[in-house]
């Protein structure tokens, strides 16, 4: 692994003012993320994991501390359109078909038509929704919608994929299926992924490293290396190593 990190988070704090009272959402978080790494930000509600993701994405400004991505500020990276973001809900535009939704960022970037079509065709195949390309979002299930959301995030060929609890609204079966799909896609594209979740099993199954955040105030309380071999398979969810890691992470919450 390369030694210069792709993303450097240094002493980042975030304080909200809520009705005259200061609320610390993040306190002094520092973290280095390597290129191509799959990192999870794990924690209960209120631990600031989404806040941290939004700071990296330049959708929020930290109160103090700095974030550097390839030596640049998050704002520069956002303007260069190097972030692909998948939100908690799919945020598909209802008036656009599946195909047109994936195409949206490419239209905004004024990429030429032929290239747009090539990319969208490849992505549709990747998420397995070629047959649904002319459907409207309202005609799809929640899991299918979120797959379209992922394809749209990948369409701009981002350096970094930011995912904010993308599967939290889905049922367990769909979620596990999409976890496997996501790993398959990640293997092909080899992006850096920052994945926010509140599911321990999900973070263990997906990640190279799990960053455990604790609430009140939100802070980084542990970073756990996940040394399960890749590619990860369904069967690994049953293995003792998997359970050991889940237990280890669960224990790191104790005393919070």
């Amino acid at each position: 692994m390369n030694n210069t990190p792709e993303i450097t988070i240094k002493n980042v704090s975030m304080v909200y003012n809520d009705k005259g009272r200061d609320v610390t959402a993040l306190s002094n978080v520092s973290l280095e993320i390597q290129k191509g790494e799959f990192i999870s930000l794990l924690g209960p509600s209120g631990c600031g994991k989404t806040t941290l993701l939004r700071i990296i994405a330049d959708l929020l400004q930290p109160t103090s501390g700095t974030v550097e991505v390839c030596g640049k500020s998050p704002r520069e990276v956002r303007l260069e359109k190097k972030y692909g973001i998948v939100f908690q809900s799919p945020v598909l535009y209802d008036w656009r078909t599946v195909r047109k939704n994936i195409c949206l960022p490419l239209e905004l970037m004024k990429i030429d038509k032929a290239e747009q079509n090539n990319r969208v065709d490849a992505l549709l195949e990747m998420i397995g929704l070629e047959k649904f390309q002319n459907h409207y979002p309202n005609q799809l299930s929640g899991g299918m919608q979120q797959r379209v959301g992922i394809a749209r995030a990948l369409a701009i060929q981002p350096e970094i994929l930011l995912m904010d609890e993308p599967f939290s609204a889905l049922d367990e079966f769909t979620r596990e299926k999409l976890n496997e799909d996501l790993l398959r896609i990640w293997r092909k594209t080899n992006k850096t992924v920052i994945f926010v979740t509140h599911s321990i099993a999900e973070s263990v199954f997906l990640s190279d490293r799990v960053c455990v955040l604790s609430p009140h105030p939100g802070r980084l309380s542990a970073v756990v290396d996940i040394d399960l071999p890749r590619p990860r398979t369904k069967e690994m969810r049953e293995s003792p190593e998997f359970f050991n890691l889940v237990t280890k992470i669960r224990n790191s919450f104790e005393g919070v």
């Binding site: 994405a57 959708l59 956002r78 303007l79 359109k81 972030y83 973001i85 939100f87 908690q88 809900s89 945020v91 535009y93 209802d94 008036w95 949206l104 960022p105 905004l108 970037m109 701009i156």
Partner: peptide, 29 residues
């Protein structure tokens, strides 16, 4: 607007005009 749809637009560094024609106008139909 749907939650996060403005965030999505700002992640594409879209200007006000784009947000109006691509997002607000169709979603008000």
């Amino acid at each position: 607007l749907k939650p996060f749809s403005l965030d999505l637009m700002s992640s594409y560094a879209a200007d006000k005009r784009t947000v109006f024609f691509r997002l607000r106008l169709p979603s008000c139909l």
